[in-house]
Design a protein around this nucleic acid. Structure first.
Lengths: 140, 140
DNA sequence: ATAATTGCAAATTTTTTGCAGGTTC
DNA sequence: GAACCTGCAAAAAATTTGCAATTAT
């Protein structure tokens, strides 16, 4: 899908096997915490060290390749940097689903921050609830 | 301001000195991380243990007295449970400011989640940027 | 060839736990 | 008086660091 090697080089990072595996895992799954990333990637790359995952996540967040998604009651997850969007966080299964961002939301937040003289640079909208899948599971 | 003893008892928690001090600090400051709460309260209550702060924060979140506010690049902060509102998070000084929630935002999120069949129960909107105060400081 | 990156092990920091003594209702 | 809470100290979990060996460019 995405060309991770190019993405990394554009961000002044060397395209190591470890980094590409991390990015691939995150893109495939959508949102992952550090320990889950490690568990996933170590399967295909058994010598991987957890410290390497920590170092790389921190570095790739700094470089703007990844974005931290802090979530109530869970460890932070990470996603690939992408267009503004909303997170639907399921309180049952913990999964996070992206929902495209809406132009009227943008306008709304712009006006709310302007009236406060607040120089907006990033939005983070988490909506917590029960996802389709878990509603069915709970009903049974 | 708030009657913390009553608030705690209504939540099936005993009104200890420690808990009332924690609540008072949080209400006074708005949003605090656990270590900062400890540092603040221990000044007026030197025998306070950090473990007690941890236990109480967890308990009061469970009981719905407090709400966790996870923030990108910071340790989670806690606030008193209150009406829906938006957080303006300053990326310079780290402070969080509340902004009253807007009816049109509500309508927007309701419609966005309904179309996904997502059963919405809680919202968390963080807008990151530079607050009034830090804009002045940076300009100087 | 060079500078960056990795994996390991140790250090540090953060959070949780068990329990004896003290407090609230 | 009973159940709950606290503080302590120890344990466990999470994160960071230093460094020698390896890898990407």
């Amino acid at each position: 899908m995405t060309d991770y090697a190019t993405l990394l080089k554009e961000s002044e990072l060397k395209a190591t096997f470890q980094r590409m595996n991390i990015l691939e895992s995150i893109e495939h799954q959508g949102h992952m915490s550090i320990d889950v990333i490690y568990e996933k990637v170590v399967k295909t790359h058994p010598s991987l060290s957890l410290a390497t995952v920590y170092k790389n996540i921190i570095l790739m967040v700094e470089k703007g390749v990844l974005v931290e998604v802090p979530i109530t009651g869970q460890k932070a997850k990470y996603e690939l940097a992408k267009e503004d969007h909303i997170h639907l966080v399921c309180t049952e299964c913990g999964e996070v689903e992206d929902k495209p961002h809406n132009a009227s939301a943008d306008a709304l937040f712009s006006s709310m921050t302007q009236s406060e003289n607040f120089e907006l640079c990033k939005q983070q909208i988490n909506l917590y609830g029960v996802c389709r899948h878990c509603q069915i599971a709970v009903a049974s």
